[in-house]
Simulated scan of single mutants.
Amino acid sequence: MRFRAKIVDIGCLNHFTRVISTIAKLAKTCTLRLTVEKLYFILSDKVANGGVSMWCELNQGNVFDEYQMEGVAVESNEIYLELTPENLSRALKAAQNAKAVKIKLTNKQCPCLTVVMELPSLSSSSRIVTHDIPVGVIPRKLWNDFKEPTVPDFDVSIYLPVVKTMKSVVERMKNLSNSIVIEANQNGEMNLKIETDLVSVTTHFKELGNPPWESEDGSQGSARDRDSESMAEARIDIKRLLQLLAGQQVNPTKALCNIVSKRIVHFILLHEDVSLQYFIPALA
């Protein structure tokens, strides 16, 4: 089992750092899945038990100048690691002026992701700084616990307003309640609502648009058949929502959410080569 990668391009390094910073704000620990083509960051708390889950993927070819990996076996050429993303985020932030950054899987009393930074110095020779980030190697028999989540059979799918705008609205609302109701319809309308014994506050968004979804037979479909004016809603933990909105270091070019009434809200954020899915279960 081997993994070794190198980043030279400063733009790619900054982009990768922003992705890892976003992951670090969403998960204390996560699973890093390495394949030949992609990197995946997975948080698989059981939604049925009230936990959030996350699935983020990016193409390694758009980040690394060199990339080599050999999995545990020929028939399963993948590596699964348990990782504290904040540790990797700190290491990468220290590398912002680096000439090159190497990341490799090592064994130093325990398995580690070793980040080696070549930093410029006043002398002719470069300074080399090394960070060893402990990781856990997840055995093959547990890999099925980290499968890509399926898109839920949603009632409404809608594009989100500008993430920064939505974040500022939710930040003000969090002082009023621990939960927030998201409701939307197939007519491009979304409402964010706070309802308590003392106060009721609603922010309305219109003309957001509804993404087309392709059905299994290849035809253009949408959410479940329902009146376009009819609202689907779910009450969710407001801190979970703010965590997602506030954690965005990579400004998504496209953001949408799918609502399964009174069950789950599924967010999808897309930015060039990165896609992030985030599932927040509804409160009872």
Rank of each mutant, 00 (worst) to 15 (best):
H266I: 00
S228T: 11
N251Y: 13
A246V: 02
L244N: 00
P211R: 10
A223R: 05
E233R: 15
S215Y: 12
L256G: 13
K206Q: 08
N258D: 14
G209T: 14
V250H: 01
H271G: 01
I238K: 02
S222D: 09
S261D: 05
V260Q: 10
P212W: 03
Q220Y: 09
T253C: 13
L244E: 00
L256K: 14
D217N: 13
F267C: 00
N258H: 14
E207I: 09
G221H: 06
E233S: 11
A255P: 06
S215N: 13
R226L: 11
Y278I: 01
L241C: 01
V260W: 04
D237W: 07
E272A: 07
I238W: 07
V260I: 13
Q249Y: 08
L241D: 01
V250S: 02
L269V: 06
G218R: 01
D225W: 04
T253S: 13
L208K: 02
G218M: 06
P252M: 14
K254F: 01
Q220W: 14
F267H: 05
H266Q: 05
M231N: 06
I259A: 04
I259G: 02
S261W: 04
I259M: 02
C257N: 07
A232N: 07
Y278W: 03
H266C: 05
M231Q: 04
I236F: 10
D237P: 02
L208A: 07
V274W: 03
N258W: 13
S275P: 00
R224E: 11
I238H: 14
Q243W: 00
A234T: 03
F267T: 07
T253W: 10
F267S: 00
H271Y: 06
K239T: 14
V260P: 02
L276K: 05
Q248M: 13
F267N: 02
I268H: 04
E207H: 15
N210H: 03
R226W: 03
G247E: 05
A255M: 08
H266Y: 11
G218S: 09
L244A: 00
D273H: 15
Q249E: 15
I236E: 07
I259H: 03
V274G: 04
K262D: 14
R263Q: 11
L244D: 00
K262H: 09
Q220L: 14
R224D: 00
Q277D: 03
S222M: 06
R226I: 10
V260G: 07
L256T: 07
L270R: 14
A255C: 12
D225G: 09
D273M: 08
P212V: 15
E229H: 09
T253K: 15
K262Q: 09
P252D: 10
V260M: 12
L241K: 02
S275R: 09
V250A: 01
L270S: 15
D217G: 11
G247R: 05
